[in-house]
Design a protein around this nucleic acid. Structure first.
Length: 567
RNA sequence: CGGGGUGUAGCGCAGUGGUUAGCGCGCCACGUUCGGGACGUGGAGGCCGGUGGUUCGAAUCCACUCACCCCGACCA
């Protein structure tokens, strides 16, 4: 490709709206252009890179025994009603109607469709396992798109789905896919952490996220430096500071004028926050839920949502709290029975707690479960926080930010049962297929790779996913010898299978060309100039190297081949 | 959905009631340059996000509205 013909322009300055490195550099290097909030056009350079990423993923999927197919993005919403996921996705799913008023959706994912496809094509255990995958555009109406390609509303995803004859088979498929994922990220130069993740409302057995550690990431990864445990913040099981369980003392009311927060109450009464119980009010699918947790801990809303089996969970608003007769700031589960009560397991770790008295400006000392209050459900719903310890080995946990580039789930039989995807086993018994699903954000890999591989000057493309192998710069194109030599070298490179971007612009100054080459960040830069031609040489520099080397013009193709490690 | 902000030339911005709306970059023509973002001369390019109001007069004031960005909430 000749840059003089390339429909892309580089930006001299950083775009003001771009905060993260990948967003900033992709805009500056002319890789992407925004069309709407969370909707981007991939310009020619980005598209070449994305196709290479797709090809790497495709090779690893094929090697793992998965078959590629292509499913539609436009789907009847009825299909989503059958599994109840229309409600689960809610406003995150783009919905529309056709000309006859039939409800349709732009698919955020493809479990429903793929399950129906397999249902129609597989009836026997002899046909299992099956793994299908596709590269497809996904649509998700995210509340807040951000950071360029990191969180968008339309994006390219590789999604794979496994169907097995039993849980053991699923474990095998899952591990095969996990290994394929590691291969993909290694080849794309993205060092990932494979972290245990929440498996969501569907409630499968296992789930793992692949995260690139990066400050700009949206997810929190919690890792144990000692035993290697890794999990995301929603899933992480930590051990919080334990409290002695004392002999119960008599319940005692105390005046706490104006004290409405745990911090205020504990300071006023001179007790540790861990010796208080906090009340938090949620609305789960519209119904108020009363949550009790030890005062030094926070509620993990994902864990809470899972134990409640609800679609929508949010903090209750003032009206809902008032309607339930609750006293914000002085609430406790004592005497509460008109709403559902959930308590974190921490209420049994400690005792003689300070709790609200359910009337203003008053608290109780020495509240104990179950003597003084009850709960409909006790579960681990505490958020793991800095200072907490690894549940496996006791070492202090570490917290880092990460960009999620892949996510795999053991789904179990939720979809196969809802949609009737059964097979006959060896004994002639009808059984639901056991499913797994496996996603990689193709466009997010590009963002993550740039986030991970850049410097002050610009992108440093990992060679396997660079849009071109070589950036050929011709200085002083108005000099006929240069134009001729550079053009001839360009043809030789392509003839040798080396993908080359040729800066043949006659009007651009040397500095402009060098800066653009650094910004776009192809693995190898070649410079043809009058100065070099006097020695019948070209200058060759690896993007990551400080110094360039001179190679004879006649040997340039071989030298580049060597530098790229190409056969 | 809450909070904050921005919409003026392809891009980045200035312009707070008064001629024909400006600057930088980019773009076009000619000339000079030619190894890390050159220079001169001359040009092209605007529904000042939209609608309605106030006014002799609106990019500028008011109301409504749309879009986009950032923080939070949210996030299979």
């Amino acid at each position: 490709m000749r840059i003089s013909r390339l429909v892309t322009r580089t930006l001299r300055d950083d775009p003001p709206e771009a905060e993260t490195a990948s967003h900033r550099l992709m805009l500056r290097a002319g890789l992407i252009q925004q069309v709407a909030a969370g909707v981007y056009a991939y310009l020619p350079l980005a598209w070449r890179s994305l196709r290479k990423i797709e090809q790497i993923v495709r090779e690893e999927m094929d090697a793992a025994g998965s078959q590629e197919l292509r499913m539609p993005a436009l789907q009847p919403r009825e299909l989503w009603e059958q599994t109840g996921r229309a409600a689960a996705f809610g406003d995150n799913m783009f919905s529309l109607e056709d000309r006859r008023g039939r409800p349709l959706a732009l698919a955020p994912t493809h479990e429903e469709v793929v399950t129906n496809i397999v249902k129609g094509n597989v009836q026997s255990y002899r046909d299992l396992p099956v793994i299908l995958y596709q590269m497809q555009t996904k649509f998700r109406d995210e509340p807040r798109p951000r950071a360029g390609l990191v969180r968008v509303r339309e994006f390219t995803m590789k999604d794979a789905y496994s169907f097995d004859a039993g849980e053991d088979g699923l474990d095998v498929s899952y591990n095969v896919m996990a290994q394929a994922y590691r291969n993909v990220f290694r080849r794309c130069s993205i060092p990932v952490v494979m972290a245990e993740a929440d498996s969501g409302a569907i409630g499968g057995k296992d789930s793992h996220e692949f995260l690139l550690p990066a400050d700009s990431g949206e997810d929190t990864v919690i890792t144990c430096p000692s035993c290697g445990y890794a999990a995301n913040a929603e899933k992480a099981a930590g051990v919080y500071p334990g409290q002695p369980v004392p002999d119960p003392l008599p319940l005692e009311a105390v005046d706490t004028p104006g004290m409405k927060t745990i911090a205020a109450v504990s300071e006023f009464l001179g007790v540790d926050e861990a010796q208080t119980l906090k009340a938090v009010f949620y609305a789960a699918d519209g119904a108020v839920v009363f949550v009790t947790i030890r005062g030094d801990l926070e509620v993990n809303e994902v864990k809470l949502k899972n134990v409640l089996h609800c679609n929508e969970l949010r903090l209750a608003d003032d009206d809902e709290v008032a309607a339930a007769g609750l006293v914000a700031g002085s609430a406790s589960a004592i005497g509460i029975s008109n709403v559902r009560r959930v308590a974190d397991a921490s209420i049994t770790n400690g005792g003689n707690f300070v709790v609200g008295a359910n009337r203003p400006d008053t608290h109780y000392r020495n509240a104990n479960y179950p003597r003084d209050f009850d709960a409909d459900l006790i579960a681990d719903i505490a958020l793991t926080e800095p200072g907490h310890q690894c549940a496996n080995c006791g070492a202090e946990l570490e917290f880092t930010r990460g960009v999620e580039v892949g996510h795999i789930f053991k789904l179990g039989t939720f979809f196969s049962e809802a949609l009737g995807a059964y097979y006959l086993d060896q004994d002639g018994q009808q059984r639901p297929m056991v499913m797994g699903c496996y996603g990689i954000g193709i466009s997010r890999i590009l963002a993550a790779a740039i986030e991970q591989n850049h410097d002050e000057q610009g992108i440093v493309f990992p060679p396997p996913i660079a849009p071109y192998d070589v950036h050929l710069v011709a200085l002083n194109m108005s000099d006929e010898t240069v134009a001729e030599a550079a053009g001839e070298l360009y043809d030789r490179l392509w003839a040798a299978g080396i993908e080359t971007l040729f800066d043949d612009r006659a009007e651009a100054a040397a500095g402009v060309k060098f800066n653009d080459a650094d910004l776009i960040g192809l693995p190898v830069r070649l410079v043809v100039s009058p100065r070099n031609l006097r020695q019948s040489a070209v200058e060759m520099r690896r993007r990551t190297a400080r110094e360039a080397e001179m190679v004879a013009l006649d040997d340039a193709v071989e030298a580049v081949r060597g530098m790229l490690g190409k056969p």
